[in-house]
Design a protein around this nucleic acid. Sequence first.
DNA 1: GCATTTTCACCTAGGTGTCAAGTT
DNA 2: AACTTGACACCTAGGTGAAAATGC
Lengths: 175, 175
Amino acid sequence: KQGRRMFPFLAFSVCGLDPTAHYSVSVQVVLADPNHWRFQGGKWVPSGKADTNMQGNKICMHPDSPNTGAHWMRQEIAFGKLKITNNKGASNQGQMIVLQSLHKYQPRLHISWVGEASDHAEGQMQPHVFAFPETQFIAVTAYQNTDITQLKIDHNPFAKGFRDNYDTIYPGIEV
Amino acid sequence: KQGRRMFPFLAFSVCGLDPTAHYSVSVQVVLADPNHWRFQGGKWVPSGKADTNMQGNKICMHPDSPNTGAHWMRQEIAFGKLKITNNKGASNQGQMIVLQSLHKYQPRLHISWVGEASDHAEGQMQPHVFAFPETQFIAVTAYQNTDITQLKIDHNPFAKGFRDNYDTIYPGIEV
DNA sequence: GCATTTTCACCTAGGTGTCAAGTT
DNA sequence: AACTTGACACCTAGGTGAAAATGC
């Protein structure tokens, strides 16, 4: 039970940090609404109450943490290796987040100041937390919406074998 | 310039943590002595002064961080994906440590308390730091000691193709 | 019925020491 | 002469959706 990567993955651009100060960047995923959802007639519709037992999800630190403001601002902060699972027993492994299927979630970006990265000073203050509604998603164990499936096949490099034109781009040529 | 993994890799067993408290575990690598080293006549011998310009190496956080004391004590804490390089430009990437060839190094284990892992409390106190002399090593760009090379070939799964008996363990049997 | 788990062929990603070539 | 770099064949590791099997 190892989970699967979130795809498309979360990526954020940040500015306004002190280039020489040190920060840790994390993502947390919280319930976005109180509903259980189902896919019916080509649409997602609410269907009963969400199971609210499994709140308090793990904070998933970006692998570059801790690092300088300059590093975080240089380019998009991508969480390409973040994985989700419905297996509670896997919750303690790195970059793994436990979710419940057919619930809607809201990712949150955390930026925490960690003092100077001299030998071992790591005193901190309250982190800034950001939530972008456009990153909400519904977790599933089997794909419902074929548009999403096709988007994954088209853009996820690991799904290349499922692209329609995969071995017909150079028809008749054997290498 | 992406560096190479340290192998054999660092691994530590810890005890005495509060099972429910939260900690981050890190490794740092510092110069072990003031010498430059060379391999001569089958032995490592001091050869001049170390270049002390590149001190203050990055603290490399274990990917499971932050996590509970129970998690850290459950099994060995392994840094199997930690990489070393001599390229200063690569210093900002995750799990990467910049070293100088032909210098001797001492890894250090850091265990930092990070308060409760409730939403975003991350206040901390001074971390505990441990250094085990048996983990010292000399960084190289080309292997000098053939015993070490053979140890790597024998035990590193990625070097399987270099084992003498690689395709002769079951001679004549085709599967 | 519908949701979840398991297995699979197919793919990307990247970690080995070696060796030849380059550098100082 | 000694050290460093880059290309390479060969390998491990693991991320895909599909589809079959299993649960509930």
